[in-house]
Each structure stands twice: as structure tokens, then as C-alpha cells.
């Protein structure tokens, strides 16, 4: 499954240890970069333009000029619904992810202003179990959407996810329905919903709220799709074409509105808000 590839890739990135201020190698052009410089550059490689993954908090900081709240619903925390155990207990995996990220789960709902416009941001963090969607992501997305409806402000989701969280089994699948209903409610209430797809956006997240945006933006070169590339390769027994399931490919196929560089994302969002709201 694609998730495995993604987690593998993520593990590789973990070694970079950006927080501690070290030298790291760009995944794409292999240039050595000083992590502090990279951070200042919105985690874009200054040499080749490769977009390193951002944490949820970094993303909020990169978009909001004024932060009212980094997380409107910080108390919502995961539980082991079905006592799931694979090679590790789900409970232990959760604990590990929480310690590693300082987050309770894979999404935060931030509230604040892009320039002078108030928005709600639903931001996923791939470091937390591959950004997988379980009950907490579903619940937070819904609360965030309802908050946007109540305050009549735009709702922006920034996705980074391998898909549904297997450890919550069928309950995680149902989050697809839950979040899609929340989008429908925003539609009925006339709320602008912009979906920003970042690397990666797959499976259950892709096939629910991620692809239901009024406007769908993708970061350059992000892997976006329903099935993981490896699953597809195994199924069709042939190699996938270069660039398949990447942002630029999706744009060409008419699946998204635009590919926007991280440096221009805030300005783009702001313009769209002004063009559609008030």
C-alpha cells in the first residue's frame, strides 16, 4: 500500500532533525542546507525549490498574520476504539506520536487572520502517524467547519495524509462520511471552503474532504491520489509514468484548480477570499 512508502519516506526525513539546527541534505537536489536557513525559507530548498514537509504549527505561522488560536479544540484526544494491535499496540503508537510531535493527533484547527481577513485553518501534520484520519481528525474537522459556519468566515483545509487510520478500522472509514457532510453543510451555509493539498494527500482523506473544496490548490510536486502508487503498480503490473499522481499531473488532468508555490500561497488565498467574499 502507498501508506508504507509514505511512512518510509517520512522516516527518512525524520533523520534531518530540523528543530536542532543541523545540516540536512535536500531530498531532491542533494545539496547540503543549514536547517535554520531552510526554516526561514518556508522549508523550500533555495537551490531546487523542493518543498520540505511542514509541521502543522509551521504552516499556521506561514499563513496567519494574527493568530487568535493555534487550536480551537485542543482537548479532543484519541482513544483506542477497538483495542487494536498489530506489531505494536495502537495505544503505544499514539503515545509515541504524541511525544514526538507535541500534538494530540494529526490535525489542529487554527483561527486567525490572513492579512485582514479572519479564517479557520484545518491543518494536518504528517508526522503524527502519517497524518492519518481517525476519530479526532473527523471530529476536529467538523467542529472547525461548524465554527466557520457560525462565524461566517472562510474555511481552509491543508491536508497531508496517507489516508484513513487503519488502527481505528471502520470508525476511521466513517470519518470520510462525517467530514463530507460537514463540507455539505458549509456549502449550504455559503461558506468558502478552500482545500490545499500538500505532500502527500491520499486514500480516505483524498476521497473525502480534500477533493470537496470549492477551490482546490496543490503544492508543487505533491503526491495526491486515491490509491498508493505501489498498489497501482502491483495491480496493473506495469511501471507508472513519470510524474504520475503529482500536483502538475492532476492540474493537467483537470482534477485541481492550480499548483501554487508555498511562497505565494498566502497571497493566493487572500485574493480568492476577497474575490468570493463580502
Amino acid at each position: 500500500m502507498g501508506l508504507k512508502d509514505l511512512i518510509g519516506k517520512f522516516k527518512g526525513q525524520k533523520k534531518l532533525n530540523i528543530e536542532k539546527g543541523e545540516w540536512i541534505k535536500c531530498e531532491k537536489c542533494k545539496t547540503l542546507l543549514y536547517s535554520e536557513d531552510l526554516k526561514k525559507n518556508l522549508k523550500i530548498c533555495p537551490h531546487c525549490g523542493y518543498n520540505f514537509r511542514m509541521t502543522a504549527k509551521e504552516r499556521v505561522d506561514s499563513l496567519l498574520d494574527e493568530v487568535f488560536s493555534y487550536d480551537l479544540f485542543p482537548k479532543i484526544a484519541p482513544v483506542d476504539v477497538i483495542n487494536f494491535k498489530d506489531t505494536k499496540k495502537y495505544k503505544d503508537r499514539l503515545k509515541q506520536a504524541q511525544e514526538k510531535t507535541g500534538l494530540k493527533d494529526a490535525m489542529i484547527i487554527a483561527n486567525g487572520k490572513i492579512y485582514d481577513r479572519e479564517v479557520v485553518l484545518a491543518v494536518m501534520d504528517f508526522r503524527f502517524m502519517g497524518g492519518s484520519m481517525g476519530s479526532v481528525v473527523g471530529a476536529k474537522f467538523v467542529r472547525g467547519a461548524e465554527f466557520a459556519i457560525e462565524k461566517n468566515i472562510p474555511f481552509i483545509a491543508i491536508t497531508a495524509s496517507g489516508g484513513a487510520r487503519m488502527q481505528e478500522s471502520i470508525i476511521s472509514l466513517m470519518q470520510m462520511a462525517k467530514t463530507s457532510i460537514a463540507v455539505d453543510r458549509m456549502n449550504k451555509a455559503g461558506i468558502l471552503y478552500i482545500s490545499v493539498l500538500t505532500d502527500p494527500t491520499m486514500g480516505g482523506v483524498s476521497a473525502s474532504f480534500a477533493f470537496l473544496g470549492d477551490i482546490i490548490i496543490a503544492e508543487p510536486e505533491s503526491l495526491i491520489g486515491f490509491a498508493g502508487p505501489r498498489v497501482i503498480e502491483q495491480t496493473i503490473k506495469q511501471q507508472l509514468p513519470e510524474g504520475f499522481q503529482r500536483s502538475e499531473f492532476l492540474l493537467e488532468k483537470g482534477q485541481i484548480d492550480m499548483v501554487v508555490d508555498r511562497k505565494h500561497l498566502k497571497r493566493t488565498l487572500y485574493t480568492l477570499i476577497k474575490q468570493t467574499q463580502g
Binding site: 482537548k75 484519541p78 466513517m174 470519518q175 460537514a182
Partner: peptide, 13 residues
């Protein structure tokens, strides 16, 4: 909609 909204288990303390 309420039925699907209620699906999910989490704590909120």
C-alpha cells in the same frame, strides 16, 4: 447527518 456526525470515539477533557 446527525448519525454520521456522532460516529467517532475520542476523549475531550
Amino acid at each position: 447527518q446527525a448519525k454520521f456526525y456522532s460516529m467517532g470515539r475520542f476523549t475531550e477533557v
